[in-house]
Design a protein around this nucleic acid. Structure first.
Lengths: 230, 230
DNA sequence: ATCAGTCATTGATATTTATCATCAAACCTA
DNA sequence: TAGGTTTGATGATAAATATCAATGACTGAT
């Protein structure tokens, strides 16, 4: 995890997201206090139970949000790319994280001390409005996604996830799954074996091709039908 | 649904929630624009797909938030009492509701035009901070609850719901379920028949007593064990 | 009062999913 | 390079859950 403290927020592609409403001098002040961190697959970005001290957002990469149970099992809440993740689910209502975040692909985050953000929210209404909008959007998305998954059976869940991954995360019918089969299982609330069985079934039905972690969707229409009607 | 437009926000028990940060004159201005509405069980407070024009919060009662599917089925997101519900899941990121809210018990809401709230967020940092906090808390709670339900089996889910209802909503080991068996099913993602079978099983095992909609938990410890370990 | 519809309940059965066991391949790591 | 661990895969079986069918109680509308 390298650290880079050069100030280049002016050019940050995420600037619009939160900082369009921030004046140049405020931006500079934030900028000097930020830390940028690089994570490799498997690295923890956030550890459940840790105190929330920073406002973290994802500049690039892919991460999973999950909860660890006492019995060692994990439940994945969501998989996110930049713009759809920020460490915000709890940050304005709790002082510790109640979930963990781990990099699935090489990822870069930018962090700003939480007190800076709070101060900015209180002093800059447009900024506050923009954070509210983003937060609303992120939690809405997670809740909606959980409902979508919940209403489906195994096959439909797998189809849904593959389509989601292809369309929202990879933007291609062929992609390398950054998730293991076990993680897919933790994501959709089924067992690893059944995830594999479904994938195999799709492969045998010529709906997808499987090359290890690489999946190619060859019958998109059929997959969508399964996602919709089971 | 009666409408009451007397201005008595000064004494509103929810005032602290959002308005502790609002000055007297701002409060008065909000106050004159608010509408208070009374709902009976079954009345819709929010209809999915309707445009979001007001900021609605629950003063008293009990409501369910749910999504209606194309096939006529419904999925309940959460059941909420005052303080744990506000119409905020989408309001800062969307212009239409993507869920419905229906009164389960007689309920009273207070509504303020959305543009007033937006204006206040932008002009009053402490208010913005307070709305952020509340919103974060509400969505966090829903997500956490969904994860709690998801990781359990049928029996555990029923036990969890009964305990939740007893402890968080009714504050008593004996309570009248405002939910039908079908609604419990929609809440936990199982079928009505299996909900009933579990309840019957708990009754036969002398864990609960059932008098129609009234449930009495007589072996709290056992129920907690089932909730924890299935 | 009557009819239609919803709700709660139970049983029989089918389907879905989990569990257990096994094995091969890939991947660390000493 | 050998040995241990994780991952992916498959089959047999058990357990959980859904579906279908039937019934009585209750509710609302006419």
């Amino acid at each position: 995890m390298g650290i880079d403290t050069l100030c280049s927020c002016e050019n940050c592609e995420l600037r619009e997201l939160f900082f369009s409403s921030v004046e140049r001098d405020e931006l500079f002040s934030l900028c000097t206090q930020r830390t940028e961190v690089n994570y490799f697959p498997g690295d923890f970005i956030i550890q459940q139970e840790m105190p929330i001290e920073e406002f973290i957002y994802l500049k690039s990469g892919l991460v999973k949000l999950f909860i660890s149970e006492e019995n060692g099992k994990e439940q994945i809440l969501t998989i996110a790319r930049p713009f759809n993740f920020v460490s915000m689910l709890s940050i304005f209502s709790s002082n510790k994280y109640n979930y963990s975040v781990q990099a699935l692909e090489q990822s870069v985050t930018c962090s700003i001390p939480m007190n800076q953000i709070n101060q900015l929210v209180e002093s800059n209404g447009r900024f506050a409005r923009s954070v509210l909008g983003k937060m609303s959007q992120v939690s809405d998305k997670i809740i909606k996604e959980m409902m979508e998954i919940r209403k489906r059976h195994l096959r439909g869940r797998i189809a849904y996830i593959l389509l989601y991954y292809s369309k929202e995360l990879a933007h291609s019918p062929e992609f390398e799954l950054a998730l293991s089969r076990k993680e897919i299982a933790e994501y959709i609330g089924m067992t690893t074996e059944n995830v594999i069985r479904s994938l195999t079934e799709f492969r045998k039905s010529k709906i997808i091709k499987i090359f290890g972690k690489v999946i190619e969707i060859i019958d998109m229409q059929r997959l969508e039908q399964i996602s919709k009607f089971g």
